[in-house]
């Protein structure tokens, strides 16, 4: 086994890695705001474009999920391309579950050729959660190695095998981080490892347990990780107390405190969704001030129509033009 020296990945200051809007916003020191959009379960472009309208102008970039929760959908690559056509900036998500290194590499080249400039590297939810649990999973490489692969393609202009790339893909590379999975004490080290592998930015799992997240961010800052990488805090507004308790119980690695469920339950009839949004807004306010947090990643799952209102009420508008 050989170790990969991530020092080689660092490009000189002032030189953009991809020149994406997200990179420019972060580099300029603005508090970034990213959104999320799941492609349709079909080739329904109309449905996808409708979602784009809710997001356009309200966020700096939009994550396009890649068969999220292992449920088959339109490819994230195609949906990202459609997004560019509609004047939004995609953050192209890629999971290691469905592709081997050949497919990964060629999709990265294709993504760049199609104008995609941000990419998020993920392992992918296990296929047993999805609608094709019988599928063979790939996991040729893992998310850590994917980060390394794509940043090596960008910075060394080489394929994994050392061959030169004829026009290398210049992508701004992100990774995910779940501070609420176990073992908690290790999470900050795993984050450090992703940064060492080459991650330019991090989007966290949905945060509900603010106490735990504060502890986590203190560890991040103590280790100086926030200076090496932009960390975007994940926010998903709860639609109801039922959703909150479902997520807490059923989604592995999701930490939903009882106090939040009770707060939503305590809301007036028909006002639980508004209470959920209020909580999200309070979170965003705190993240703006929290040391080490460079922005917010808003995952309004199948609730994209609320993004304009949340962006407005969170004081995120207008988005900076860099």
């Amino acid at each position: 086994m050989s170790e990969i020296n991530s020092e080689n990945n660092v490009k000189p200051e002032g030189d953009f890695k991809s020149g994406s809007n997200l990179e420019k916003v972060l580099r300029a020191g603005h508090f970034a705001f990213t959104g999320e959009c799941g492609p349709p379960k079909g080739a329904n472009v109309h449905h996808l474009v409708e979602k784009f309208h809710h997001l356009k102008g309200n966020v700096d970039a939009v994550n396009i999920t890649d068969n999220q929760t292992a449920v088959v959908r339109m490819s994230s690559l195609a949906a990202s391309h459609l997004m560019i056509d509609h004047g939004l900036e995609p953050n192209f998500q890629m999971v290691c579950r469905d592709r081997n290194r050949l497919a990964i590499t060629s999709d990265i080249l294709g993504a760049y050729a199609l104008g995609i400039r941000n990419m998020l590297c993920l392992s992918g939810d296990h296929q047993s959660f999805g609608n094709h649990p019988e599928a063979k999973n790939v996991h040729d490489i893992d998310s850590m190695q994917l980060i390394n692969l794509v940043t090596t393609m960008r910075d060394k202009e080489e394929f994994l095998n050392g061959e030169k790339i004829d026009v290398a893909p210049k992508l701004f590379v992100g990774a995910a981080c779940n501070p609420f999975a176990d073992p908690f004490e290790y999470r900050v080290y795993r984050l450090a490892n992703k940064i060492a592998a080459g991650a330019d930015f991090i989007q966290t799992q949905c945060i509900y347990n603010m106490d735990k997240f504060r502890t986590f961010m203190k560890q991040v800052v103590d280790m100086g990780l926030h200076e090496k990488c932009y960390i975007l805090a994940g926010v998903t507004p709860m639609k109801s107390a039922r959703m909150a308790s479902f997520m807490g119980k059923m989604v592995p690695g999701m930490d939903v405190p009882e106090s939040l469920i009770n707060r939503l339950k305590g809301a007036e009839k028909g006002k639980q969704a508004e209470e959920g949004i209020k909580f999200a807004l309070e979170q965003i306010e705190e993240f703006k001030e929290m040391k080490g947090v460079a922005g917010v990643h808003l995952m309004a799952i199948e609730w994209e129509q609320m993004v304009p209102e949340i962006a407005e009420r969170a004081g995120m508008l207008p988005r900076p033009v860099v």
């Binding site: 893992d142 999975a181 176990d182 073992p183 690695g253």
Partner: peptide, 13 residues
């Protein structure tokens, strides 16, 4: 389950 060489993933609980 994912043969990760850098784990644990976010689903470890």
């Amino acid at each position: 389950a994912k043969s990760l060489l850098h784990g644990p993933c976010g689903g470890s609980s």
